[in-house]
Design a protein around this nucleic acid. Structure first.
Lengths: 236, 236, 236, 236
DNA sequence: AATGAATGAGCGTTCATTCAT
DNA sequence: GATGAATGAACGCTCATTCAT
């Protein structure tokens, strides 16, 4: 029994090692650059061993996506309980996106790959379901904050807009900005010196636009977010 | 300069033909599916001839990206003069993003490819500069609208925020939402029934948050946008 | 010898199980499709255990060939005592070939594999000898029928032709026709509607050519063969 | 024009070289042993060059089969006009089988491979049709001899037996014997000293069984066949 | 004796690129 | 300038065999 579990542990550890070697290749050089040959060489294991862990290349990509989504979801969960008022909890989720943003580039690249029919179809149903559940749970969590805000009277949902649709706005803003930050290394040349601060300002303005109580000045909001970001960073 | 001979014209035309054959392959089937063999076969020229026009496959991809960015810029230009007030001109730019969004999938996919270090590094400096200039001109255009709004007193730029940084917010919102729409076929499952309308609402709210005058009700704003979208669509 | 312990019996039984799992794979999907992995999975033992029984994949193939040849020899034995006169006993052997012919595809495919130098050379001398003995015993049996016919005066061997050489003619005719039937699915297109009946006719004519007594009309011969075929089929 | 045709000639010659290198590997070591890597190495060309000639491995196998069948058909054609009487023409075809028999082993092995669904299906329709036509033309040729014999009154077809079915008998006898000769290197151990002479005797007896006129003694027939065999051999 | 993870040479195939014509 | 045959490294993947446990 003890022997078995040691072996199993070794296997799981190697699986982790495969993924952590594969991730930077995938992110920095793209799907094509991730080759089973190179991966095996880097691990200093035989190619066949790779295939004992993952039945094909695509499954590695999807496994990485699962990891990304899981990590983000956990950060959301931890962030969402750091503060009491829904508005500040929403800000905390935004902070966790910021903190996650270095990894977000990866998530983003990998998610794009999932759209590739070939990759998606070659991956196992098990992992496909994991992906879907993970997205759903993240959305539920954040939409829950919005519903709490409505319940306590801090926020009034505009006509015929659901909590999810409101989340979608903040999600787009955050996701879009991090994607742009990652993909446009020349943002400063375009006149955007501190994009992260800019997005905080936009998100704060959007909340104001929705009259999400309690109102804070941007300086207050910003220092709250600094504090939260600090805690999230030290958490992970 | 004037001596653009018949031969040079023919060469440019063939270059165009290569790009217009390559684009649908790249967009519909991905980077790997774009092969010099297939391309040569489709255009009924020899593979070697392809290499007289583009020194490598990557250069074709970057040339396509330039085309995409140019198209979007032109749409911005046309949209930005459809209305008189800066706020409505800004809305028009948002509309052109919406309209462009079906083709945006292309742009987006190609832009992603530019992030691939291998592709970017193999492309010529000349085309890299084209890319950068194109982005810069788009930004100038939209930031110009913001500056006009400030100039006529419709908008007050928040403390230490540039026009470009304000644009960055709307850009992130729009870009992020279209990326999410394109990459998450299951958005409705997450509770987001009409994502395009949602984003219009968010953008409208964000403008309100910035107290961008003149104020319109969302119903008014929405019908203005419908009208603009109609004209852009019939333009292109 | 008597000390065939329980363990040894178990080993033999497992060996049988391996062969009976391997045969359909080999026959239906070919040599390449027979993989030690699949075989081990199907028998629910580890791959290493397989190697305790057969030192390599080739040995399994040869063991199957031995089984095939053994089966055919037994059918010959049973068939050869169904009738009294040598001519009818010879016909019975032909019948057993017919009956065997559905399984002959197996035998044939496996025998072909034995011709593959790689397979033959990797198999053990022990099994190679088994193959040779099996062929020899079959030949002895059928040649014995011919010698009986000569002994009782039903048949006169042509000048300098041995009983074995005479058997070789019938063997070639039968083997060749079954091989052609198996390998040419388009025999009817070539104008050969009922190849089995044709071969019976040819074999009957060949016997007549050798003036093998007693003479039967083809109709008589044919109905005798139908009867024999029936008994062989119900036997096995 | 002259340049083009030289190039085309070179290509055809190399195609021939590929086939003539592939044939012995295929025949002596089987389908699996024929690997594109080895083939390319033996030719001292790059693997990719192989694929400029044949789109896949299977196509090489089928091309070899076409060659085999073509060769046999041509031998049949030449043989069938060496003599005047149908019976001797039929004997001549038998002789060409004998002469062909060294190559027949190859033909046989290759034909077996065609039965493999995977190989057949991956080959081009063009080559599949060639195969079918070739078989059909061979059969027509030999069945034509039988029909001539009937026409001139040398032979009477048994009840409800077609010319093709009669051919099938001789085909089976010849094909079967050569297959056995090729696959049983131990025929002498089984008591069959001169299998070729035996088959001549069987075929002669079978003709006698069909009362195919004009009658020849076996010694006569045998010396006629020796003569024909000589001419065929010197022909090819 | 039984296990099954690890191996690594091998497979058929692709394709960007070169260069002699 | 146009050609397209030749290249050969690289790809994803397989599987018979070994051997530490």
């Amino acid at each position: 029994m003890a022997v078995l579990s040691r072996k199993q542990r070794e296997i799981q550890e190697r699986e982790q090692r495969i993924l952590s070697l594969a991730r930077p290749i995938l992110v920095e050089q793209g799907y094509q650059a991730l080759s089973m040959d190179r991966l095996a060489a880097q691990m200093e294991y035989a190619k066949g061993t790779l295939y004992n862990h993952f039945p094909n290349k695509e499954e590695i990509v999807v496994a990485l996506a699962v990891e990304s989504l899981e990590l983000r979801r956990k950060m959301f969960e931890r962030a969402s309980i750091l503060r009491a008022t829904p508005r500040e909890r929403m800000m905390a989720v935004g902070c966790s996106c910021e903190v996650y943003s270095s990894a977000c580039a990866e998530h983003f690249a990998v998610e794009q790959m999932l759209r590739n029919a070939v990759i998606w179809e070659k991956s196992s149903n098990k992992r496909q379901d994991l992906i879907r559940q993970c997205e759903l749970r993240s959305m539920d969590l954040v939409a829950g904050i919005v519903r709490d805000a409505v319940a306590v009277g801090d926020l009034q949902l505009p006509n015929e807009m659901t909590a999810e649709e409101l989340v979608f706005g903040f999600w787009s803003l955050t996701y879009g900005s991090h994607a742009l930050i990652a993909s446009s290394p020349t943002l400063p040349d375009l006149g955007i010196g501190d994009p992260v601060r800019s997005i905080r300002y936009h998100a704060w303005t959007l909340m104001n636009g929705y009259r999400w109580a309690p109102y804070l000045s941007f300086e207050e909001a910003n220092s709250v977010m600094n504090e939260i970001a600090e805690r999230i960073r030290s958490d992970s």
